[in-house]
Each structure stands twice: as structure tokens, then as C-alpha cells.
Amino acid sequence: MPTLAADLPSAAEPLLRVTGLSTGYGKVGVLRGVDLTIKVGEVVALLGPNGAGKTTLLRAISGLLPSQGSVSFAGRDLAGAAPRETVQAGLAHVIEGHRVFTQQSVVDNLLLAAYDLPRGERSARVEEALGYFPEIAEKRHQRAVALSGGQQQMLAVAQGLVQRPRLLMLDEPSAGLSPVLVDRVFDVVRKLRESGTAVLLVEQLIEKALALADRVYALARGSIVLEASTAETDLPHRLEHAYFASAPVAAE
């Protein structure tokens, strides 16, 4: 979206800067001092074994989970912001498990994502988001419960796009999808990059994620254990090493 260029931060300043972020559930610490940056229009993959805290990190960034540390986005301080404020700041979070509102139609699901937009703009934005996914545009008046899992995932991504975010965070968009549908979703991510939207992608399909992303972070045991450009060679091996072999138990 070139029209946004005017108020983009300068090239030196990243779009999202997370510093020293720690959080957890109750007394259980999950993340310990995570640092992470995303530049404008960059696709970043966030990888890591189960239970490493990937989903938790996305929740903390979007304000769904309270956290300590600083989160600045497009020059704004978003630490402690409610999810609604982060969405309005241009940071959309598509949560895991394609949790769309099953009893409402496709269009109504998208209109809900446009809740805070001026009344006149809503349907145009909904059409724009549907433009990315002709498959569900055909079913616009069906209830979401009638969609397949893959189509529900497309709807969830489309919900994220309604706000025209500067950064779209996708949590395991491929889970439960057939390979063809995964490619469809990833194609959309490529299109978004071309239009200048940054994407933070949590993904289980490592090879596909690496093929798509510009940069990669690996999270293990609540901390970032690897940060690399996907152009680097030997990345899969380094990733595996980062997952398994760096713990004190194995080191002894």
C-alpha cells in the first residue's frame, strides 16, 4: 500500500521493536527477555519447538497477554496496550486454530473485523480482503461453519487484512490445511510483502517458511536462540542444533 509511505518510520527505525519482553501464565514464566525486530515490509518466520513460547510471544505483542518489557510499533509505545489499540495501530494478529465466528456469515465475520472503521468504508474494505481469497468470496453469504478448515483459515487471514495492517502476525496458518491450501495462503503473504506489509509468521512447516521468509528467529525455552537471514546456508542444521543441543542437560 504505497499510500502509507508518508507516515512510515524512517528506514533506520524498524517497524516493530520488542526489547526485553518477559511474560507467562500465572506463576509460570514462559518468555524471558525476548528481543525481536521487524522492518517495514519484511517477512519474518518465528520457529521453535513446541512449548517454546511462540504463540505466547505473539499474544504478548498484540496485548492479549500482559507482559513486561517494551514493545514499540511504528514509533508508538505499545507496551501494556489492549488488543484493540494494537489493532488500531496497524498490527493485526491472526490467532491459531482458525477461530472464526462459525454462526455468522463470511461477510459478517469480515465486517466484525471492520468494527472500528467508518461505516462508509466497511464494505469496501471487506471486498478488498475478499479479493485475496476468491474461494471464500464465492461463499460470502454462507455461515462460516459451512466452510472447510482451510477456508476458515483463509477467512481468519482475511479478517486480519480488513484493517490494512502494517504488520500481520500469523500463528500457524498451515495447521490442518492441505498442501495446496497452504500454498494459497503463502502466496497471499508474498503479495502482502510486495505491497509493503510486514508479516511475522509462526510456522510448523519449516522448509516452506524458510522459503518464504526474509529472516528467521528461533525460539527455544523462552528465549531467542537464533536469528539469521534465510539467505544463509546450513540454516536447517543450525536450527536443529538450536532446538536440541543447547540445553545444559545435554551439555553435561
Partner: peptide, 13 residues
């Protein structure tokens, strides 16, 4: 239906 998804979407819950 889904309070958490509604919050993630930015609805004024």
C-alpha cells in the same frame, strides 16, 4: 461465541 477471538480481532469487548 469466542471471547478470545473477538478480543484478538480488536472488538471493544
Amino acid at each position: 461465541e469466542d471471547n478470545y477471538a473477538a478480543r484478538a480481532l480488536g472488538l471493544p469487548e
